[in-house]
Amino acid sequence: MLKVERLTKTYRTAGGPLTVLRDVSFELAAGASVAVVGPSGSGKTTLLGLCAGLDRATAGTVSVAGRDLGAMDEDARALVRNAHVGFVFQNFQLIPTLTALENVLVPVELAGDASRGDEARALLARVGLGERCDHYPVQLSGGEQQRVALARAFMNRPKILFCDEPTGNLDDDTAGAMVELIFGLNREHGTTLVLVTHNLELAKRCARIIRLKGGAVLHDEATGAA
């Protein structure tokens, strides 16, 4: 489902070139789950951005669902994201001007499908927000906003879900409930999961952990989790 080969990312800075990711390779089958961990500045977010087609690699390739993202222009990558990818961000990233329901509907409406209102409501109900469909992000708590984001991430039935510190801004209880939702929905939908986190306990819920340091893979190990 996701194939990363010799991925390198170098930024040009005032002080000269800065390589934040070097020679990273791994492969994920459909339905697999992986946690990317490492200290700040180790290249976790950069790796996630490249895997999701949000940025271009300096060297190496990324393939999602058998399609080489490096060969595509930004609009083509956008189509791939819309068709195959779901996102959950640390800062929720809901569109403040849209209601919870409208936020969830964005991915499918973008694809030209305006008939899935009921499905969106059901997804919101699944994350416990069936009564809050018409609320704006500002009217929701942090945990509620993240649950809307999760419902939005599953709305286009993604083949792969990228989560960037999904519990980073939540308290322990809310974070725990959120984690259950992520893994529960992941199982229900058979989605491949890529989770970037500092939280080792959370990482261990994934079948595999890739540990980054200084932009390179330090360890790549199975956890034994299902």
Binding site: L54, D75, A78, L79, N82, V85, Q93, I95, P96, N156
Partner: peptide, 16 residues
């Protein structure tokens, strides 16, 4: 800008 970035993440093209 933040809204646009989210839309782009969700699959909206630059043109859209």
């Amino acid at each position: 800008i933040a809204t646009v970035a989210v839309l782009r993440c969700l699959g909206a093209s630059a043109r859209t």
